[in-house]
Design a protein around this nucleic acid. Structure first.
Lengths: 349, 349
DNA sequence: CGCTTGCGCGCAAGCGCTTGCGATGCCTTC
DNA sequence: GAAGGCATCGCAAGCGCTTGCGCGCAAGCG
């Protein structure tokens, strides 16, 4: 910037002001400065600016499993919203590990992000969250809810899962298993609660033996599913707690040559983009990923504007998408479907 | 940091040195400083450090389609490698738009990233790349190759695609169409070249009418595929140029109730994680996504160490994964398969 | 008992930018 | 013709950290 000032024959003050439009300048000097900028190939140093101004125009994003299609859709939406608001994203992967999460959050905070978007791990309450709170960093929690005073966004889990299970019950299933993600995450807990709720409503009673603990790892889910199938009284239908679990469960089925829905019914939380193109066409709950990302950013921006505003929680509605993996297709009448927004799917809110 | 210094009764100089271990200090003062840091809840300001030192320990990543599973796997690998090397990632989505790409690259550069990872758009040579070059920013290009003096990493495209097509030819197909991505990207061009090569080798001749221009958008691919199917002499088999194209093509098939592989054979570039679990099980070329990300970071780090080193290009081998969508299953002997690394797939290098 | 060594530290000058105060010169206004 | 107003700009003090110099002091030396 000093170069520019020299070339334009003005002070750095003036250069700074014409760059930022923070103070009027004569047309003449404006032009000279602009030209000097052009000729020197001047590249502003955002760091120095941030240091001087306090505020980096950047947001931290700490999340687990970038390669998880659900999250990557959310990330994509977040990137879009952040970028539209003139913010840059700093990215970190928590790997679902509270220590790693703290490291990431620390690193991002030390880089002076203006705010933080975090999909908290199961141990966040003991590590990352206290840190964020003590440092007074504007934060919004994503996907998983936590019992703490933070802004939070996520989908509704309990009722949609219950709906999934009830659908299986309606189809006559009595032994319904569930493959679940990481214990301690609200997403997991709430979905399990929905599962139990539906069983209860259906007068079925909850059998802990029918829970396949997948810990959100495909291979663990596969192994756990395998164990379920070895039961004396194995399930005739499964509900999967998230897309990783779905993959694991299906692998376990494939291992034994079980076919969906003929040998085994399956419904799942989390949709896949291609899900209506391949068989079995999965009956799922679809989360509003784009909206989720956008709301999260919106919440964060609003908090940046008013740090004192009381924390807000937003539950977004998830959609029931009726396809074939539940075993309904053609053979028996599909239950209460209300709309068909997608071309090949039956979709209901 | 001033607070810490005061509380410890030393100068900021000393605080800085004990934090960074840049100068020996007496055990006593070390302890006092550390304790003061603890008690003040001091959080180092990376920005100020970067400003003083020059060097931010952060890398820029500009890529398109975060929600593309191929890219999100690469991103995941990059994040891992970068994080292991002590770097933070700044993320931007180019949306395949050269102007947007330049904006992103600029924003990242102005944030003083130490180096840049870029999946160049088709117009990069006119915008982003000259900028990067003129600013002397260490850069490695990703996925797509470009005719310029940059470090570059990507998969082999031509031969693998040819292999895909030859496979169809071996199965007796004579009208083989291809759905292709964005023109001007080396990935697209090279894959088309592989397609033509195979046709030629098979004595089939290239018919431009059989190219479905999908521009890497699912809906365009679907429409283009639709047009192909309306031909007087429609293809009996398709090869898809990337995973978006695959989705589009399959949608077009679904629209008409065409079944793969019975009514239509399909082979594709890009694997999906779940591809062996759903029908049709796609026969594909799988790119080494993790390796790609890691090599890219490795290249960038090595360039940071030695900025003068001549640019390097790395072609990574893609894998032929033989499944059912080509129409081979059981009915006819599968051609030259050499290994079966995956449990349910036939995989060949 | 002076003098060198070496150890432990602090001073202060930046890094590149922003911004509160003025300073300067010219044009109006009584 | 002096005073006030307005439009244009520059000075210099930071923002929080790093780092080349150099100072003081105790130990070691002849």
């Amino acid at each position: 910037m000093a170069d520019v000032a020299r070339l334009a024959g003005v002070s750095v003050t003036t250069v700074s002001h014409v760059i930022n439009g923070t103070r009027p300048a004569s047309e003449r000097t404006r032009e000279r400065v602009l030209e000097a900028i052009e000729r020197t190939g001047y590249r502003p140093n955002t760091l120095a600016r941030a240091l001087a101004r306090g505020g980096t125009q950047s947001l931290g994003l700490a999340i687990s499993g970038l390669s998880n299609p659900y999250f990557s859709e959310v990330v994509s939406a977040i990137e879009g919203a952040a970028s539209r608001a003139g913010h840059t994203l700093l990215l970190g992967d928590t790997r679902e590990d509270p220590e790693q999460e703290l490291r990431i959050v620390r690193a991002l905070a030390e880089r002076q992000v203006d705010g933080m978007l975090l999909a908290p791990t199961a141990g966040a309450l003991e590590h990352a969250l206290p840190y964020l709170e003590s440092q007074g960093i504007p934060t919004v929690l994503l996907d998983r809810f936590v019992d703490a005073d933070f802004d939070q966004v996520g989908s509704d889990n309990e009722q949609p899962t219950a709906r999934l299970v009830e659908h299986l019950i309606d189809r006559g299933h009595r032994r319904i298993g569930m493959a679940i993600g990481i214990r301690g995450l609200s997403t997991t807990d709430e979905r399990v609660r929905g599962y139990k709720l539906a069983l209860e409503r259906g007068g079925l009673g909850f059998d802990p033996a029918l829970l396949a603990e997948g810990a959100s790892e495909r291979d663990r889910a596969r192994a756990a599913m395998d164990a379920l199938l070895d039961l004396d009284d194995p399930p005739t239908a499964m509900v999967s707690g998230n897309n990783f679990m779905t993959i694991g469960v299906l692998r376990a089925f494939a291992d034994r040559g079980l076919r969906v829905p003929d040998d085994m019914a399956l419904v799942a939380f989390d949709d896949f983009e291609w899900a209506d193109l391949f068989a079995p066409r999965l009956t799922v709950i679809r989360q509003p990923t784009a909206e989720l990302g956008e709301r999260a950013v919106a919440l964060l921006l609003s908090r940046l504007e008013d740090p004192e505003r009381p924390p807000r929680r937003e539950r977004l509605e998830a959609t029931f998408v009726h396809r074939d993996s539940c075993g309904c297709t053609g053979r028996s009448p599909a239950p209460q479907i209300r709309a068909q927004p997608s071309e090949h799917d039956d979709v209901t809110a």
